[in-house]
C-alpha cells in the first residue's frame, strides 16, 4: 500500500443513455479518507465509481491519481485500486478459497484462513460459491478487503445483503484501512456517520 496517495476528480461529466448523471463534479480524496457518495436511485453513484476505476469513460473531466493524470489511461490507478461493484465478481463454479486465490494469488494459507475465520467462511472454504447465499457470496468478494494490499477501495453498496455482524465487520475493516492510510470511496444508503469522513452528493 502506498504511504501517501490522493485522488483528484475535476469537472467530471458523466453521460449514460443520453442523460447527464453529473456535470462539473469535482472532489478529492486523500490517504485516510472515507468518502460516501450519496444520491437518489439513478443519480449516477455506481457510474461514478465505474468511471473512477476505468470501466466507463467520462464525457469530460480529469482524473488524477497521486498527482499523475490518469484520465486517458487508468492502468496506474487500477493496479492500486480494489473495486467491488453490484455484481461482485465472484466465480460461481469456483470454491471460496479458489475465488480468493484467483484474485489474491500471493496470499499465504495462514492469512487466508484468518480472513475466512473473520468472515465466518472457514467452514465453506471448499464449497462452490453457487451453493452459498447472497450474503455469503458478498462476504467472499469482501474477503479481498482483508487480503489485498491495494490503497484505493471503490465499493458499490458494500453493505447490501450483509447481516448485522457482517456490517459491523466491514465497518471495522474500512476504519482499519483508513487509519492505515488507505482511501475508501463507497456508495451506501446505510447511515455511516461514524465511518465516512466526507459525503459527496450527486444531484439529479
Amino acid at each position: 500500500m502506498q504511504s501517501f496517495a490522493s485522488l483528484t476528480i475535476s469537472d467530471l461529466w458523466i453521460e449514460r443513455a443520453e442523460r447527464d448523471l453529473c456535470k462539473g463534479l469535482s472532489f478529492s480524496v486523500q490517504s485516510g479518507d472515507v468518502v460516501r457518495i450519496l444520491g437518489e436511485n439513478g443519480a449516477g453513484k455506481s457510474s461514478l465509481l465505474k468511471v473512477i476505476v476505468g470501466a466507463l469513460s467520462p464525457e469530460e473531466g480529469r482524473i488524477a491519481y497521486s498527482g499523475e493524470d490518469v484520465t486517458l489511461d487508468r492502468s496506474i490507478l487500477q493496479q492500486d485500486a480494489l473495486y467491488i461493484g453490484h455484481s461482485v465478481g465472484v466465480k460461481q463454479r469456483l470454491s471460496v478459497a479458489e475465488n480468493i486465490r484467483w484474485y489474491c494469488p500471493d496470499v499465504c494459507t495462514n492469512v487466508l484462513h484468518e480472513a475466512l475465520k473473520s468472515l465466518e467462511l472457514i467452514d465453506y472454504m471448499d464449497t462452490p460459491v453457487k451453493k452459498l447465499s447472497a450474503g455469503q457470496t458478498r462476504r467472499v468478494a469482501l474477503a479481498r478487503l482483508w487480503l489485498s494490499q491495494k490503497t484505493l477501495w471503490l465499493l458499490d453498496e458494500p453493505f447490501a445483503s450483509l447481516d448485522v455482524k457482517g456490517v459491523e465487520l466491514l465497518e471495522e475493516r474500512i476504519q482499519q484501512h483508513a487509519l492505515a492510510g488507505g482511501m475508501v470511496i463507497l456508495t451506501s444508503h446505510q447511515n455511516l456517520l461514524s465511518l465516512a469522513s466526507r459525503d459527496v452528493m450527486l444531484l439529479p
Partner: peptide
Amino acid sequence: KEDHRDGSLEQLVVSG
C-alpha cells in the same frame, strides 16, 4: 456469458 453474469468480466476490465 458466465463471467458477465457474475461480474468477473468487469473485474478483468479493471484489473490493471
